[in-house]
Design a binder for these strands. Sequence first.
DNA 1: CTTACTATATGCACATTGAATATAGTCATT
DNA 2: AATGACTATATTCAATGTGCATATAGTAAG
Lengths: 129, 129
Amino acid sequence: MKQKESGCCASKHQKMERFLEISLLMLLFDKKGYGYGLIEQLEDFGFTSEDLNIGSLYRSLRKLADQGLVSSVWEDAGQGPKRRVYTITAEGKDELHNWIPILKERKSRIEQLIETYEKKSSDTQGDKK
Amino acid sequence: MKQKESGCCASKHQKMERFLEISLLMLLFDKKGYGYGLIEQLEDFGFTSEDLNIGSLYRSLRKLADQGLVSSVWEDAGQGPKRRVYTITAEGKDELHNWIPILKERKSRIEQLIETYEKKSSDTQGDKK
DNA sequence: CTTACTATATGCACATTGAATATAGTCATT
DNA sequence: AATGACTATATTCAATGTGCATATAGTAAG
């Protein structure tokens, strides 16, 4: 039967690629932000300049906008070029809310993998080496 | 500087696609297994028949074999067709070992997202609705 | 004017993925 | 031994996702 595209958190498959999108929604949850400026804020979620690609960032923001999860306006920054400033929508907040249980499940799956490894590797501790 | 392809856990980017590969290595850690039979064992790690694709499974096993992380032989099952039975190699065990800290980091990143959400959503609890 | 920086956006080649399909041996029934 | 159901492995294909490089352009400093 599958859960089909139920509007929320579409895509039954648990892809980690979406981690960036979720992180962006999280950052925008309580205050607006713009692409370039969000980069350093993403460090709070473990993104480093090495593994964060600027192109992917802008594409993700566009994708979120296309889905209606954020809205954007051009704002004059006073200093430097204008910025496309993003604000989360009510739909975006719903989407984020719906992602939480999925994140929790994913977390427990990772936990189980770690626990399984620790159990298995201690069982074979008396091996060679 | 980046960590480059340091032999272990190659690919600096934390892709969740590899979750299947890691799960397979985990299952093969202490006993051999074959493709079709591993499917139900994967349920222990949260894979369901809906989100597990048989084609991806065989491709992952082949990929692991290409990397030298598992080896395979054809075995007569007594019942039914022959099976390509996989066994983890020493390199495969090393790879799995090296993945553990990465899994732990990933887990803590997810935890932080969840905690951040719970904090933020409680801050705005007095909103509408 | 030119250089450096901020900021957004796009093009392209490549990798991953799900779904469908292919291949083929085995088993039970007739 | 012919049929059909099932086990088991493997491959093709189209769609999507990705990193990297590059394009575009406004602003600031000299």
